[in-house]
């Protein structure tokens, strides 16, 4: 990839200005799709979240109410009608948040060495490694999740192997546990962590690492003071790419967790389905989007700060 497109200068010569204008025109179709397909539905969702819920799904158009939003955080007790915090929703929010953070940390822990390994291979073999990382994307997420089920269930590959070599006497319950969900999530999102990390480690100038050693820095110090600060944008990008989809994850918790404990994605789905409470579903969706937005703002602020460090 060349760096010719890397234009951030404001004082552009006329031909570059024309080029910039052309770029806007070229990107117009994409922009209009984004406007129509992303912003439009969000506006509808916002509108719906302020309406009265329909008896059998949908909303009563133009009958406004704050119930949807109030219900996200507060609820009348089912039995004594006192208003209190929406314990159920907060529990689910917290569970999703916790799972997403754990997934991100685990993906980072596994992804960093992997990306480092790939980036330090000879140039012509790197592409093969990156290619290998993308292989899981060839198969549908659903099918991969079913494959994990096969591996970890009671008569699955792991348990059968352990039983056969006599390490355990009875199968270990792995499927339908929180550990299974975490394992599945890390597996699914790991490539999204490795790829941006690889991109930033590849650009790392290893002469700086050598210089560090020359100046008697320990390995840990080199990692902490030289490598990590320089690959920080990649780390943050990877974390964001993993964290955001984790928050809304639906299939993996459902299949590997046995559907016993709801995640945010499942909670939202149930409001549009059996719950028949579209305003609440819309309000929770928007809350989720706000969470993601805060995460992004956090990212942008951090990335620009560290980006300035090494230009």
């Amino acid at each position: 990839m060349t760096t010719k497109t890397d234009v951030t200068n404001n004082e552009l010569p006329p031909y570059r200005k024309r080029e910039a204008l052309n770029r806007w025109i070229i990107s117009l179709p994409a922009l209009s799709i984004i406007m129509l397909a992303a912003i439009g539905p969000i506006l509808i969702m916002l509108l719906y979240s302020f309406m009265v819920k329909g008896d059998y799904g949908g909303v009563k158009l133009w009958e406004f109410s704050f119930d949807g939003w109030i219900n996200v955080f507060f609820q009348r007790d089912i039995f004594d009608e006192t208003l209190g915090l929406a314990d159920a929703h907060l529990t689910i929010f917290w569970r999703s948040l916790k799972l997403s953070i754990l997934t991100t940390l685990a993906a980072l822990a596994f992804g960093l060495p992997t990306a480092y390994f790939i980036a330090t291979r000879p140039k012509h073999t790197r592409e093969i490694w990156v290619f290998l990382i993308t292989i899981p994307f060839w198969a549908n997420l659903l099918i991969r999740t079913f494959a994990i089920q096969e591996v970890i269930r009671n008569e699955g590959i792991i348990n059968n192997t352990l039983l056969a070599i006599g390490i355990i006497d009875s199968p270990i319950q792995m499927l339908y546990t929180d550990g299974a969900i975490l394992f599945g999530m890390v597996y699914v999102y790991l490539p999204l962590m490795v790829l941006p990390l690889y991109a930033s480690i590849e650009k790392l100038d290893f002469r700086l690492v050598e210089a560090g050693y020359d100046l008697y820095a320990t390995r840990l110090k080199v990692l902490r003071r030289i490598i990590l600060p320089m690959i920080k944008p990649g780390m943050i990008a990877g974390c964001i790419l993993v964290f955001i989809p984790s928050l809304g994850a639906y299939v993996t918790p459902r299949l590997l967790g046995g559907g016993k404990n709801m995640m945010l994605g499942n909670l939202i789905e149930s409001q549009f389905g059996a719950g028949r409470n579209w305003p609440l579903g819309s309000a929770i969706s928007i809350t989720l989007m706000l969470l993601v937005m805060f995460a992004l703002i956090f990212y942008v602020r951090n990335a620009t700060r560290s980006g300035a460090n090494h230009g």
Binding site: Y56, Q75, I92, N261, M262, A274, G275, N277
Partner: peptide, 17 residues
């Protein structure tokens, strides 16, 4: 009725949390 159904949904969410 929709009200009863709504009540059951709330209980259901509470159970599934």
């Amino acid at each position: 009725s929709p009200e009863t159904s709504n009540l059951y949904t709330r209980i259901w969410t509470d159970i599934n949390k």
